[in-house]
Design a protein around this nucleic acid. Sequence first.
RNA 1: GCACUCGUAGCUCAAUUGGAUAGAGCAUCGGUCUUCGGAACCGAGGGUUAUAGGUUCGAAUCCUAUCGAGUGCACCA
Length: 665
Amino acid sequence: MVQPLWTITMNLLSLLKQRFSTALSGLVDSPTDYLPLIRPAGDPKFGDYQANCAMPLAKVLGKPAKDIAGEIVSRLDVNDICHPPEIAGPGFINLKFKDEFLLQQFVAATIDERVGVEKSSNPQTVIIDYSSPNVAKPMHVGHLRSSVIGAALDKLFRFLGHHVTSDNHIGDWGTQFGRIIYGYKNFLDEAAYNTNPVGELSRLYRLVNQLSDYHELKTGLPKLEATVAELTDNLATAEAAPLDKKDKAAAQKLKDLRNALTAAKEEVVSAKSKIASVESNADLSAKAQAHPEIARLARVETAKLHQNDAENLALWHKFLPECLKAMDQVYDRLDIKFDMTLGESYYQPMLADVVSDLEKRGLAKESQGAMCVFIEDNSAPFIVRKADGAYTYATTDLATIQDRVERLHANTILYVVDARQSEHFQLLFKTAALWKYPHATLKHISFGTVMGEDRKPYKTRSGDTVGLESLLDEAVVRAKAIVEENESLKRDEDAKLSSDDIQLIAQRIGIGGIKYADLKHHRESDYVFNWDKMLAKKGDTATYIQYAYARVCSIFRKGNIDREQLRHDKSFKLTLTEPLERAMVIKILRFEEILEDAAADYRPNILCQYLFEIADLFSAFFDQHHVLNADNETVKKSRLKLCDITARVMNQGLGLLGIETIEQM
RNA sequence: GCACUCGUAGCUCAAUUGGAUAGAGCAUCGGUCUUCGGAACCGAGGGUUAUAGGUUCGAAUCCUAUCGAGUGCACCA
């Protein structure tokens, strides 16, 4: 027997595209241009999918769009899968699948290990560069988005069959090591180091920073205060001048002055408080007096390290493993694993050659003592070697591209880095293309800021950045309180939990809540961090989806259903008796389409929205229709299969986001 | 000064990249409960998509101007 064409795909959209491609090929030169205009219907009343090709073709073909739509439909062969297409409005072609076809596809998906998602036919070798903290500085909220978005894309691309290598491009060669080394040589508490090396290093880092800042602020304060005075005068003069509403430049200047004054005042306040915090402490004050040149000397330590000074290099080798161990603890909690952790230090031996090669090719030129690549239409140069002879992160990034392309054979490199560095990446990518790699796909996957309720970067109440570990701790503590509170409200005695369960659930809900809150937003936008919203029991949260998943599992538990056996049970004919069931089947069959959309634009929020919609559909279905007590055995088994695959899609989808499910919560 | 990003419901955000009546969640108001987990479900109100023009069959999306917010601008990464 010949298999019908549609058994080879469970992707509804790509199947329709194939059919339209055939239909359009006699009409237009390049049918592929019009295939993206086939998309899910905007409104269920228009059917399941719609094709918007006719309108743009009206101009090309010089005929009314409705006539073209008619012509496309007459050429279109979808009888086996769809009801007769309808033409509506200016020339929309509306398509609705036959239930029989949907059920065939559905069966194929239920028995498929990958719930109907095929691997890419064109797998890419992708390096995903994300998280990338500076070692020895504790990780903070700033690292959250890169880590969470990066890990989600990592899992997504892998699942789609690409050859992914995740790389944590850590800062392990920067100025922070000079500070730590200086601290270690001058302020070490040996006992503390022996019990908790990273804690002590981190204390030393903060101490050296604080003392350096102290001296800098102390010398800078008079100037800062003078600036405030000057701005105050200028503002007074400007405000005294007669206000001409038409003079926009003057109005703008006035506003700029006010903003500058506010900023300068804040700076003075902050400086004074930092100075006071040192001077009010006898120990700190004494240390500050004893180390007036601390900032310069710390830089000297960095320079010595970079020149392979034996002592500093030994210290670096001593510190680094401890720092990495501490980092891994955080990654364990976030369930993130890297294939490689090649920090800046790894690329150091290559930098001199990178610069000389750029020079040889005439790309890099000397300017004001520094070696620079000038990119057209960019005023700022791309500095690959500073006037003092040191290399910059630009150089390291170029060496990194070289290594990834030549040694690891990457054809795509994704940088999950915040939006503020977009200019750097533009210059980097242009330079790389001019240099040796015009064919590598280099993408900056930029993302916005995590903000507090005040719409400024998220800080603690005292104004410090929030440490990532304490953030995770708080999430779990808050989640646990919610789980415990809910436990006491439960109606269903069977659903009661042990205290071990509660701890595990609190972890999955807490960490999942943080991740979901981050991923559900468009990555380019800034978003406001809000505990209550991300852990809320209702609404568009990880918890809601996790709860829907737990409810499905509860059906199987109560009914003593062997899900594996169920999947291969062919002793009955599937039926769809309710519109909600049909909606769920279509939604499930769209899983691959959604994953591809999410991957195409590197946007986990597309997947989040999809998972929420599935959970929402399931919750409505669960409320309105019975599974275990269905009218007859056929309906019951059909619904059980639907429940099984719904659960698998939710589990798989959440898994790709790095969010774990729980069978009971 | 230059460059980039953004402005959508009271709040937090979407909108398949130019498609049909701009959608969710929260909050508000109303409803559902003796059945598989109420961390639930159903419904209602709420919008001149910052403003003004323009482009076209069609604009939150594209172009221009204005207003407002943010970010980045040689030797930190």
